[in-house]
């Protein structure tokens, strides 16, 4: 295992988190957008509440444009993708040009589809790019620690999102299990007691989402 600096460890972890945030929030957006097509505008409020982000959108059109494409909106998919890109492009020597290229391609797609009336077409390409990025990271990054730091970021983010969304116990159980395996393969500093506690919380009959969120957010110390 080669030495990875503190700065790059932080970037790898957040690259994993932001790429996952883009991926999962696009899928969630797709679900809510499908309902909004039928005139159920209340799903915008529901969507924002479930992700714990402010509902700043004045109409369905405003929601589509600003939640997806507005670089000034810190909660937009665009902003999250830009953060993934900002991290990725400074990690070329750790993860390779081929991996980075898929994040770069996703940025181009995002820019091309600004103002689109059919946002899901472009978003599908972004999902494909993110999946390709993860696949390549798995396949091409030789350093196990580097690979697993990205994946730990991804697992932390997914568990965070699933807890916010109050996903079924089975989903939470699966994500806790994946996170615990992944983080143990890194040199990241974390408390194994926190992992045990997460497992207990996921395993209990009634899921305490709030406690899970609290633990997940402070799990990794960088």
């Amino acid at each position: 295992m080669g030495i990875v600096s503190l700065i790059n460890t932080d970037k790898l972890f957040w690259l994993g988190r932001y790429s996952e945030r883009v991926y999962t929030t696009i899928r969630l957006f797709g679900e809510s957008f499908d309902k909004i097509i039928d005139g159920n505008a209340e799903y915008i409020e529901l969507f924002c509440r479930s992700l714990d982000i402010p509902n700043i959108y004045s109409s369905t059109e405003d929601y589509v444009e600003r939640y997806l494409f507005d670089p000034q909106n810190p909660d937009s998919v665009y902003s999250n993708l830009t953060r993934a890109y900002d991290n990725a492009m400074t990690l070329r020597e750790e993860i390779g040009s081929e991996c980075i290229s898929y994040i770069q391609l996703a940025i181009y797609v995002m820019n091309r589809h600004q103002g689109s009336q059919s946002p899901m077409i472009g978003l599908q390409q972004i999902l494909d790019d993110i999946l390709a990025f993860w696949g390549l990271a798995d396949d091409m990054i030789p350093d196990e620690n580097i690979r697993n730091i990205i994946k730990t970021g991804k697992r932390v983010e997914r568990l965070d999102l699933y807890a916010r969304l109050k996903r079924p116990r089975t989903d939470i159980l699966r994500e806790v299990s994946r996170l615990s395996v992944r983080i143990s393969r890194t040199n990241l500093k974390y408390s194994s007691e926190d992992i045990s506690r997460l497992k207990q919380l996921a395993d209990s009959a009634t899921t305490d989402y709030y406690s899970i969120l609290q633990i997940v957010d402070g799990l990794v110390i960088i």
């Binding site: 503190l6 700065i7 790059n8």
Partner: peptide
């Protein structure tokens, strides 16, 4: 990437005991 070197900024290097060190996480 192509030379297999670490890409670093100044804050990732320190001088100690007369040598230069690359610091890991």
């Amino acid at each position: 990437e192509k030379t297999g070197a670490h890409l670093v900024s100044g804050s990732e290097l320190t001088v100690e005991d007369g040598y230069l060190w690359f610091n890991g996480y």
